[in-house]
Computed example of a mutant assay.
Amino acid sequence: MINEYDKLLDGKSGTVGCPILNTEAIKKLGLQLNGKTQYLNGITVYASDYFNPYDAPTGILEKTSNTYSIHWFSASWMSKNKRLRCAIMKPIHRMLRK
């Protein structure tokens, strides 16, 4: 995962969220983007309903019997303009379910 972050150190790549960087690193270990819990090279990658049942773009919370915690995603690392755009788009994403 550190290698994914190293690519950003030039200061030209902008800001990239941890989930994107971590997913790219784990895909190289064979992660299938199927929403299921997977076991890869001695690590467990849990389905999103365990730790992230909140869909930030839509604002929809889908807790399941697997849910252990909820990451509320305040996007504090994003610029104010990006956060405003997300807030404006949330009702549209909710209607379209993404």
Rank of each mutant, 00 (worst) to 15 (best):
T37D: 10
N66Q: 14
K27N: 08
T58D: 02
Y54W: 06
D55G: 03
Y68T: 15
L33E: 15
L61A: 04
Y39W: 09
D49C: 11
S69W: 06
G59Q: 03
G11C: 09
L29F: 09
S69N: 12
K7E: 12
L21V: 00
L84P: 00
C86I: 10
S76Q: 13
V45H: 00
R85D: 10
G42F: 01
Y39Q: 05
P57C: 01
A25S: 12
E24M: 07
R85H: 07
L31D: 01
K36H: 04
I20S: 12
W77V: 08
L31V: 03
F73P: 01
V45S: 00
D10A: 05
S76T: 12
Y54T: 01
N34L: 09
T58R: 04
T67E: 11
P19N: 10
A75F: 10
S65V: 15
S74Q: 13
L29I: 00
R83H: 05
S13M: 11
A25N: 03
Q32V: 15
K36N: 11
Q38K: 01
S13E: 11
D49W: 03
D49L: 03
W72E: 04
N52M: 13
Y68S: 14
L9E: 07
S13C: 07
S13L: 10
N3H: 11
D6C: 11
K82E: 14
Y50E: 02
D10Q: 02
G11I: 09
L40S: 01
K28D: 09
Q38M: 02
N3L: 13
Q32A: 10
Y46T: 02
W72C: 05
F51T: 09
F73E: 14
N66W: 00
E24H: 08
S69L: 12
N22R: 03
L84E: 12
I2M: 07
K80A: 15
E62N: 15
M1L: 12
L33C: 01
G42E: 00
D6R: 15
P53R: 06
N52G: 03
C86N: 15
L33P: 07
A56G: 04
I60N: 09
L33G: 03
K80F: 09
A47P: 00
V16M: 07
T44H: 03
S65E: 15
H71T: 11
T44F: 01
S65F: 07
T37V: 08
K27Y: 05
T15V: 14
I70M: 11
I60Q: 10
M1E: 10
K12V: 06
S76H: 04
K27M: 14
S76P: 01
G59K: 00
I2S: 11
G17P: 03
